[in-house]
Deep mutational scan, measured.
Amino acid sequence: ELELEEVDLYRMNSQDKLGLTVCYRTDDEDDIGIYISEIDPNSIAAKDGRIREGDRIIQINGIEVQNREEAVALLTSEENKNFSLLIARP
């Protein structure tokens, strides 16, 4: 049973970094989820404190993420200042 949490992050300008590194968990081929492998200690996500390494990203801004490229594109989008992440953890 996964616990879901919605985390809203806000950046003042497009130079601010959310600070999330995303990856696949390669140990299970059936698991195509996108996971947070690293959080930059000086980033918006780290200061917010709710997202943890190992969390799975389900949605970004209401869009279900299917692959790492999509997640990276959404997280690094210059147009977005508000990010709503739906994350899951066991």
Results as ranks from 00 to 15, higher is better:
residue 5 E to Y: 13
residue 73 A to N: 11
residue 36 I to L: 04
residue 45 A to M: 02
residue 42 N to M: 10
residue 56 R to I: 11
residue 39 I to G: 01
residue 10 Y to N: 10
residue 17 K to A: 12
residue 34 I to C: 14
residue 24 Y to Q: 13
residue 90 P to C: 04
residue 26 T to C: 04
residue 38 E to R: 11
residue 67 N to T: 13
residue 12 M to V: 12
residue 54 G to S: 04
residue 66 Q to K: 14
residue 44 I to T: 07
residue 66 Q to F: 12
residue 7 V to P: 00
residue 55 D to C: 05
residue 75 L to H: 01
residue 70 E to F: 05
residue 40 D to T: 13
residue 88 A to G: 15
residue 8 D to E: 06
residue 43 S to W: 03
residue 4 L to E: 07
residue 20 L to D: 00
residue 66 Q to A: 15
residue 80 N to W: 15
residue 83 F to P: 06
residue 26 T to V: 11
residue 40 D to V: 13
residue 69 E to C: 14
residue 50 R to Y: 02
residue 50 R to G: 04
residue 47 K to A: 13
residue 68 R to C: 15
residue 1 E to R: 02
residue 50 R to L: 02
residue 5 E to N: 14
residue 36 I to Y: 00
residue 22 V to N: 02
residue 20 L to C: 03
residue 10 Y to P: 05
residue 42 N to I: 04
residue 77 S to P: 07
residue 34 I to D: 00
residue 32 I to S: 05
residue 82 N to Q: 06
residue 39 I to V: 13
residue 69 E to D: 09
residue 52 R to Q: 10
residue 34 I to N: 13
residue 54 G to E: 06
residue 22 V to F: 11
residue 14 S to Y: 11
residue 36 I to G: 00
residue 49 G to R: 07
residue 18 L to G: 02
residue 7 V to G: 00
residue 12 M to H: 13
residue 36 I to N: 00
residue 5 E to R: 07
residue 14 S to R: 13
residue 58 I to M: 04
residue 84 S to L: 13
residue 55 D to K: 00
residue 38 E to V: 08
residue 50 R to A: 02
residue 89 R to E: 01
residue 42 N to G: 12
residue 87 I to M: 10
residue 28 D to S: 12
residue 22 V to M: 10
residue 4 L to T: 15
residue 85 L to C: 03
residue 75 L to Q: 02
residue 72 V to E: 13
residue 16 D to K: 03
residue 63 I to Y: 12
residue 69 E to K: 08
residue 65 V to H: 04
residue 28 D to W: 05
residue 51 I to H: 00
residue 40 D to K: 13
residue 86 L to I: 10
residue 21 T to G: 03
residue 51 I to T: 05
residue 45 A to Q: 01
residue 67 N to I: 04
residue 61 N to H: 02
residue 27 D to W: 05
residue 80 N to C: 09
residue 32 I to M: 02
residue 29 E to V: 12
residue 72 V to D: 14
residue 10 Y to L: 15
residue 34 I to F: 08
residue 67 N to G: 07
residue 54 G to Q: 08
residue 88 A to R: 13
residue 41 P to S: 12
residue 80 N to P: 14
residue 14 S to E: 07
residue 45 A to G: 06
residue 48 D to E: 08
residue 17 K to F: 09
residue 57 I to V: 09
residue 11 R to V: 04
residue 48 D to P: 02
residue 14 S to V: 12
residue 8 D to T: 01
residue 76 T to S: 07
residue 53 E to S: 09
residue 51 I to N: 00
residue 18 L to V: 07
residue 26 T to Y: 10
residue 66 Q to Y: 07
residue 90 P to Y: 03
residue 9 L to M: 05
residue 19 G to L: 01
residue 13 N to R: 08
residue 67 N to D: 13
residue 80 N to Y: 05
residue 52 R to T: 07
residue 55 D to E: 02
residue 70 E to Q: 14
residue 71 A to Q: 03
residue 73 A to T: 09
residue 78 E to L: 08
residue 28 D to A: 13
residue 88 A to C: 03
residue 46 A to C: 05
residue 28 D to G: 10
residue 83 F to V: 07
residue 20 L to A: 01
residue 70 E to D: 07
residue 2 L to E: 11
residue 40 D to E: 12
residue 54 G to Y: 05
residue 59 Q to R: 11
residue 14 S to L: 09
residue 78 E to T: 11
residue 74 L to E: 11
residue 82 N to C: 06
residue 44 I to Q: 05
residue 4 L to M: 15
residue 36 I to W: 00
residue 71 A to G: 05
residue 34 I to M: 12
residue 75 L to K: 00
residue 45 A to Y: 02
residue 47 K to E: 14
residue 38 E to W: 05
residue 54 G to H: 06
residue 56 R to Q: 09
residue 43 S to L: 04
residue 70 E to R: 05
residue 28 D to C: 11
residue 58 I to P: 00
residue 35 Y to R: 06
residue 2 L to V: 07
residue 4 L to I: 05
residue 60 I to S: 00
residue 77 S to T: 11
residue 4 L to D: 02
residue 9 L to F: 09
residue 22 V to T: 11
residue 60 I to W: 01
residue 80 N to D: 09
residue 43 S to T: 04
residue 43 S to I: 01
residue 12 M to D: 11
residue 79 E to H: 08
residue 35 Y to G: 04
residue 84 S to R: 10
residue 58 I to S: 10
residue 25 R to P: 15
residue 88 A to K: 15
residue 29 E to A: 12
residue 80 N to H: 14
residue 19 G to W: 00
residue 22 V to D: 01
residue 61 N to G: 10
residue 68 R to D: 13
residue 17 K to Q: 13
residue 15 Q to E: 10
residue 61 N to F: 01
residue 47 K to F: 07
residue 88 A to Q: 13
residue 1 E to C: 03
residue 72 V to Y: 09
residue 25 R to M: 10
residue 63 I to T: 13
residue 69 E to P: 08
residue 52 R to V: 07
residue 60 I to R: 01
residue 7 V to F: 11
residue 37 S to A: 13
residue 80 N to V: 05
residue 10 Y to T: 14
residue 15 Q to L: 09
residue 79 E to N: 12
residue 17 K to L: 11
residue 75 L to N: 01
residue 24 Y to G: 10
residue 21 T to L: 06
residue 62 G to F: 02
residue 48 D to H: 06
residue 87 I to F: 03
residue 6 E to D: 06
residue 28 D to I: 08
residue 33 G to F: 15
residue 35 Y to M: 07
residue 25 R to Y: 15
residue 55 D to A: 06
residue 14 S to F: 05
residue 45 A to S: 10
residue 43 S to V: 01
residue 34 I to P: 07
residue 16 D to F: 05
residue 13 N to D: 07
residue 74 L to Y: 15
residue 53 E to H: 06
residue 76 T to C: 09
residue 65 V to M: 08
residue 44 I to M: 14
residue 21 T to C: 06
residue 25 R to G: 09
residue 21 T to R: 09
residue 59 Q to D: 09
residue 2 L to I: 09
residue 6 E to S: 12
residue 29 E to H: 13
residue 25 R to D: 15
residue 55 D to W: 02
residue 79 E to Q: 07
residue 5 E to I: 15
residue 63 I to L: 09
residue 75 L to C: 03
residue 50 R to N: 04
residue 1 E to K: 14
residue 61 N to K: 01
residue 85 L to R: 00
residue 42 N to K: 11
residue 48 D to G: 05
residue 55 D to I: 01
residue 84 S to D: 08
residue 46 A to E: 15
residue 24 Y to V: 15
residue 3 E to G: 05
residue 43 S to N: 04
residue 82 N to F: 10
residue 14 S to I: 06
residue 89 R to G: 03
residue 11 R to L: 15
residue 83 F to L: 07
residue 19 G to S: 01
residue 9 L to R: 00
residue 53 E to W: 07
residue 78 E to I: 09
residue 56 R to M: 14
residue 49 G to C: 07
residue 7 V to A: 02
residue 11 R to C: 02
residue 63 I to E: 10
residue 88 A to T: 06
residue 65 V to K: 02
residue 34 I to K: 00
residue 12 M to Q: 10
residue 22 V to I: 12
residue 23 C to L: 12
residue 20 L to S: 00
residue 26 T to F: 09
residue 78 E to W: 05
residue 84 S to A: 06
residue 59 Q to V: 11
residue 80 N to S: 12
residue 66 Q to H: 14
residue 31 D to R: 13
residue 16 D to N: 11
residue 31 D to T: 14
residue 13 N to I: 07
residue 13 N to V: 06
residue 50 R to E: 03
residue 12 M to N: 06
residue 64 E to Q: 05
residue 46 A to F: 09
residue 90 P to R: 03
residue 46 A to K: 13
residue 40 D to Y: 06
residue 56 R to F: 13
residue 19 G to H: 00
residue 31 D to S: 15
residue 38 E to C: 09
residue 52 R to F: 09
residue 21 T to W: 05
residue 30 D to E: 15
residue 3 E to N: 15
residue 64 E to Y: 04
residue 10 Y to K: 14
residue 84 S to M: 05
residue 64 E to I: 03
residue 15 Q to W: 07
residue 28 D to R: 13
residue 69 E to V: 06
residue 80 N to G: 12
residue 38 E to K: 11
residue 71 A to I: 03
residue 30 D to A: 04
residue 73 A to D: 11
residue 5 E to T: 15
residue 17 K to S: 11
residue 6 E to K: 13
residue 38 E to H: 14
residue 38 E to T: 10
residue 26 T to L: 07
residue 85 L to I: 07
residue 41 P to E: 07
residue 11 R to F: 02
residue 85 L to N: 00
residue 37 S to G: 08
residue 72 V to P: 02
residue 59 Q to G: 07
residue 54 G to L: 04
residue 5 E to K: 12
residue 41 P to K: 09
residue 34 I to V: 12
residue 89 R to I: 01
residue 77 S to K: 10
residue 9 L to K: 00
residue 68 R to V: 08
residue 2 L to W: 03
residue 51 I to V: 12
residue 83 F to S: 04
residue 35 Y to T: 12
